[in-house]
Design a protein around this nucleic acid. Structure first.
Lengths: 233, 233
DNA sequence: TCGTACGTTGTACTAAGTACAACTCCTTTT
DNA sequence: AAAAGGAGTTGTACTTAGTACAACGTACGA
């Protein structure tokens, strides 16, 4: 297939290289890298060198590789794409101290949701995730809330829309429960969802009720700050 | 040159594509993109599609492009490479409220320095920069401090090492002044530098002296938290 | 109604990327 | 100590796979 609607293989290989790195394996040897992406070492080396030219990859002293600073820079520009003001960070921090659970903001990105901001709980047992991670829209409270406020007409999400929040326990991941509410911007446009997440054991009905209030106050503040209407509740 | 020590051109083209996006131009049309990287539209389209497969790029509804969530995720992993604990964020925030100036942490990355963490001042006139940006090591206080604590022997940086801090005004950028101190980890290993930056007009000798104390307290706290010795001062 | 911008597809050409094998250092094993 | 295995690197031959070009459809503005 010379050039119809295809992409560029070398570029996708490069992307796979980058994605081979994780929280735990933040530094990889050439051989390990080659093994993971299933390419010849020499091929990987050439691609890695090109990535390094733009600081998407950095070479360690021991010749192993790690991700580069340009990724942080670009990731930051991605965030700014959403023009989410810097009141978000302290707001999430407040939420964490008030509720004891991890707080996060999710936005829709195609048919997935992305964790755009996040603040981890201080408790030893807590839900931890990484900013930029993607999850399904139709699993977990933060996703369902987004769905509920996207498709308007009478759907299975009518209830959520009416209630103005949603809570799940172990739906997407058996280990985590969450409560989520919508955030609006520029009028009634949905921006995303604000959620508290933690272990299901701590998400009793009454705990949810208590935290929901706090969550809604924060969501209203946020929506207003972003030029949206405070929301349903 | 088939395959000696070169890289992969297509990968570098893809990297240039990503770098075409900035704070201001966080969304670009295909044509604009092609113009900036000086490639044919069809070529750009193919590369962009491949980048989009990995969510390094995202397509807008109006067919224009913007950076993708994977960049945030990878950028975050890059940050974690430095195993800098999450006490940093609040510490920088504190620094900002105490001094009124923007606070940032720089680490060495090859022959440059990278802004790894940052907290902007609340004042209307303030120094703003983006996390992940790279600057020269030999210009500006944060860079010079890093240099001073890297090469041990009697060099031109002896004075800085003895003083334990450095202040500059308009060295790298005529518009900005800064005071910087070193941060250590794992014993006496240099981690990077902690700096306050702002307009030169606000960096009088006495202002520097006052802010320096605050800065040094914070740096000592940070160093200890990272298993380093508190430092010289 | 024309003109010019856009994004898109197909095609021909060849440059550019690939895998392989060979090589050099190391470190570990026997 | 020698050998065996692993690391990263380089050169080469083959041909795939990426490129620019030109042509097309569409939408917007003059």
């Amino acid at each position: 297939m010379p050039g119809n609607s295809a992409g560029v293989a070398a570029v996708e290989r490069a992307a796979s290289l980058l994605e081979a790195f994780t929280d735990r394996d933040y530094t990889l040897s050439l051989g390990e890298l080659a093994r993971r992406v299933e390419l010849d070492k020499s091929t990987v080396l050439r691609i890695a060198r090109s990535l390094a030219k733009h600081q998407l990859l950095v070479r360690n002293d021991d010749a192993s590789w790690r991700l580069g600073p340009t990724l942080m820079k670009l990731g930051n520009i991605y965030q700014s794409t959403f023009r989410a003001s810097d009141i978000i960070e302290p707001l999430l921090a407040d939420l964490v101290t008030q509720t004891g659970e991890s707080a996060a903001i999710y936005v829709r990105e195609g048919d997935e949701r992305v964790c755009l901001f996040r603040h981890d709980s201080h408790q030893s047992i807590r839900h931890s995730a990484r900013v930029g991670s993607t999850y399904p829209l139709d699993r977990g409270a933060p996703g369902r809330v987004i769905l509920a406020f996207i498709d308007r007409p009478g759907s299975i999400y009518d209830e959520i829309r009416k209630a103005g929040f949603y809570a799940t326990a172990g739906e997407r991941d058996p280990q985590v429960a969450s409560v989520a509410v919508p955030i609006f911007r520029d009028g009634a446009t949905l921006f995303g969802s604000l959620a508290l997440t933690g272990p299901p054991a701590r998400f009793s009905e009454e705990a949810i009720r208590k935290n929901l209030e706090i969550l809604q106050v924060a969501a209203r503040k946020l929506s207003v700050a972003m030029g949206g209407e405070p929301g349903t509740t």
